[in-house]
């Protein structure tokens, strides 16, 4: 069952075509909840990337040993294990960032995106392809989170990565918790608009 895509194509697929946040609209909770700064998005992105890559590789390695009847429990167990690992590592080495992310690191275990990738990709494809796919998905999630964080941090507190760039606070509203919904909604609409625009243009030229 060889995969005809190259590794770079798999990564690009996760970042652009099947971006977990904007295109697949999965794992929205952290996208709304803690995307107040770029740094938060980056840290959670790292955690998700780690869990996604590790689980994909693990499942891909043992895919022939998994009994079909206990497929889902095995996925859950794998994900939970890796989430526990990253949770402990972050708590030990980056306590400050960990405190900011609060409960969301532990909640990675319930993220639909990871289970979905295991079910759709890792349990069929070889280890190498699963690794690249996991990397792409994780990066896609990370970039999505960071984009939302960028918009909210810039508009809410006039800063990027904690550095004051604007010198004033344009709209405090964006840093308020409920603004996450608006930012995600508006950005989705924006991406839709680009897609529609692009298709229309293509349609005219061809």
């Amino acid at each position: 069952m060889a995969n005809d895509k190259t590794s770079m194509q798999l990564v690009a697929n996760g970042i652009l075509k099947e971006n977990p946040i904007f295109r697949l609209a999965l794992s929205m909770c952290p996208a709304v909840g803690i995307s107040t700064t770029v740094m938060n998005g980056f840290m959670l992105g790292i955690a998700v990337l780690f869990v996604q890559v590790c689980s994909s590789v693990t499942i891909s390695m043992v895919k022939n040993l998994i009994h079909p009847r206990i497929r889902i429990p095995t996925y859950t167990l794998t994900i939970a294990t890796w989430v526990t690992v990253i949770d402990m590592v972050l708590a030990a080495y980056l306590p400050e960032a960990y405190a900011k992310m609060g409960i969301f690191v532990k909640l990675i275990v319930a993220f639909a995106i990871i289970t979905m990738r295991l079910e759709m990709f890792a349990c069929k494809e070889p280890v190498g392809a699963s690794f690249w796919d996991g990397l792409g998905m994780g990066l896609g999630f990370m970039i999505g989170m960071m984009t939302i964080g960028l918009v909210r941090e810039l508009l809410g507190s006039g800063a990027i990565l904690g550095y004051d760039v604007l010198g004033f606070k344009p709209l405090l509203f964006f840093i308020l918790p409920c603004a996450g919904f608006f930012v995600v909604g508006l950005m989705m609409a924006f991406f839709n608009y680009i897609e529609v625009f692009y298709k229309r243009k293509k349609g005219f030229t061809s």
């Binding site: 526990t84 690992v85 402990m88 590592v89 708590a91 030990a92 080495y93 306590p95």
Partner: peptide, 10 residues
């Protein structure tokens, strides 16, 4: 294993 490795550092 991870717990043993990280608890001290924590």
């Amino acid at each position: 294993l991870c717990f043993v490795l990280t608890s001290k550092a924590k």
